[in-house]
Design a protein around this nucleic acid. Structure first.
Lengths: 367, 367
DNA sequence: CTGTTAGCGCCTTCAT
DNA sequence: ATGAAGGCGCTAACAG
């Protein structure tokens, strides 16, 4: 039946065989306009027979839209990315858009490349969830100004014609730290940032503010694991940072009684360093992570952490983008901030109920 | 300077202002053919001024290639996917191709959608790393026969004109199981599969073969955590399967002395179940995972596991694809199988050296 | 219900 | 070193 064709089948090819014009074939393929049932059936038959695939390039060129949206993510190996893209896809695919994901492993250069590819291929819009950088921000501004709908997630960059979605990580960090303070801790370490590069990490700012508001000193030696400014790392390598950072804290003469880790992977690294040192969690050292990755429920002890509504952020960014694509590109920008939720588990509260299996409800006992 | 334009800038727009023909502008933009230095500079200036972006649709339509490759992945939230896409991108981006990733959350329907999107948008080739299914395989065959270069990774589907790359997970599973047997274990459980759905999971087949070759019985009650046939799950939810599965095994009257988990996430769930039960690893129960995710090094005890060269598989698939794109689409198929490597750590060998920090070398002590 | 015309933006080919 | 012609495959807009 099938003969291998070097050249892809076109509407004209089908039209020739079905004895109609390309226009009629187009109407059949797109289910638009009036076509006689017999004609439709015949054309459809031929199209199927010839294994026709429409040419999205020609179609997009003519229609000035591709029904395609780009999603730019920094680190793919991250539950965060998975949730986010899930939310984005839920909304967009239902509306008939295809989502193409571009990875930029946390470098500004790849960020820019991703934007350019997407723009060149005439994606109808772009959702950006990578960390901000000067060069990438500049390119972003150019693209926005040239009219491409753009929606930002958790990116520290504002533009009058791009929407922004984020989580209140400042508050999240603040609450996590307050939780430790409320439990009597006075020496609280932070793993995963340095004082200099931390200015952009909201959860770290929350940590600092919580200390200040409670009259506790900020001690440099309790803040470990920072990288050079601009240097980024994939989520999965941060456990090493957690492990190494915790080792440093354990060597201090007066070590912290509690530690706030920049994310759950970091916290898991720290957790294992603590256990290797023969110390108990939370009795000797209490531990808080960030993100509530699924694994946080399966460590022992289970990990206290802060959850941000990641999927919702993805959905929201997608909805903002749709509004821009299907409405006015230059409409005023929308911005939405989602609240985070502190999830108290055993790593800070000895009495916290053991949560097992798939039960992921919030469990806070006032001990 | 910038004026917001509703309509994107075209070569003709630039040509008009630079007082040349579109053809000359094209030559400048593409750095092809002879253009006077002055003309080039002037055109480039105007292009930059107007914030020109080339139209990939028109370009692709004319040139019959888009310099774009699609990568279809099932589960994004997985270190495996990250490594794979890293390898693919390394090879392809160096050669000037853009990689667009499509996610199909392990469903055949989304698989087919991803193939179609990519084919419609005229990707120059597609790399498929999702699990096989009947409907997706059929569509794949159609696409291959219509001439789109396709390269498969770890997918149980063969076609004379599609290349295939995989890891020898049968052998990996076999060796992992033999390792346990060598250490004196006779009752070895498997978590993450059922006898019926396991026929397609090579590492499980390796487990079965190892038992058989060593004269050990296959006991149904030691095999837990299976799903319905066809039902898939994201990598991250498999820890729950590991936890729940281990709980089941612990309830057995004569519980296994060793457990082989389908992947490292499953193993981590099992690990925590064992520890909660107050048992020691490996003294009471030895544990082996699969994949060597970064976290496997940061559990306590560290996790014995099987590593497959994921990045290399990605690179290889990309190279196969390039050969097909830039050579003859109908060349005979290439196939390559990579060996796996057993990584022995503390969860099976009490004497195994503690590996810390970023040192990820293989550490086997013959205890 | 079906056909004609024209052009989306670019680049291959040939001419100058 | 530059230009002109034509068409890649598709579909709006307008006939008929």
């Amino acid at each position: 039946m099938d003969k291998k064709q070097k050249k892809p089948v076109t509407l004209a090819d089908i039209a020739a065989i079905a004895a109609v014009t390309p226009m009629t074939v187009s109407r059949v393929i797109n289910n638009s306009g009036y076509v006689h049932a017999d004609t439709r059936a015949r054309v459809l038959g031929v199209a199927r027979e010839m294994n026709y695939r429409r040419n999205g390039l020609a179609r997009g060129l003519k229609r000035q839209c591709t029904e395609t949206v780009g999603l730019v993510i920094g680190d793919i190996a991250n539950p965060f990315a998975a949730e986010l893209s899930g939310g984005v896809r839920e909304v967009l695919e239902e509306r008939g858009y295809t989502v193409f994901i571009c990875i930029s492993e946390h470098t500004a250069k790849e960020d820019v490349q991703a934007f350019d590819s997407l723009a060149d291929h005439r994606a109808d819009g772009i959702i950006v969830a990578t960390r901000a950088s000067k060069s990438a921000n500049e390119r972003l501004a150019e693209l926005i100004e040239s009219g491409i709908p753009i929606s930002l997630i958790g990116r520290d960059f504002r533009h009058p014609h791009a929407d922004l979605v984020m989580a209140d990580n400042l508050k999240g960090g603040y609450e996590a730290t307050c939780h430790l303070i409320d439990n009597g801790h006075k020496r609280i370490g932070f793993i995963g940032v340095s004082l200099t590069d931390g200015v952009r990490l909201r959860r770290f700012q929350g940590y600092l503010e919580a200390l200040k508001d409670n009259g506790l000193p900020v001690e440099d030696r309790l803040i470990v694991g920072g990288r050079e400014v601009g240097e980024q790392m994939p989520g999965y390598s941060t456990e090493e940072m957690g492990y190494d950072g915790m080792m440093k804290l354990l060597e201090l003469k007066s070590r912290p009684t509690a530690v706030f880790a920049r994310n759950d992977f970091t916290a898991m690294g720290a957790l294992n360093a603590i256990k290797r040192a023969g110390l108990r969690i939370p009795e000797d050292i209490a531990l808080v992570g960030y993100d509530d990755i699924p694994l946080a429920l399966h460590t022992s002890p289970t990990l206290t952490t802060v959850r941000q509504p990641t999927r919702e952020q993805g959905r929201c960014a997608a909805e903002f983008l749709l509004r821009r694509i299907e409405g006015d590109h230059e409409q005023p920008r929308a911005e939405k901030t989602f609240d985070c939720e502190l999830i108290v588990r055993e790593s800070t509260l000895p009495g916290a109920e053991v949560v097992s299996g798939s039960n992921r409800k919030r469990k806070i006992k006032t001990a």
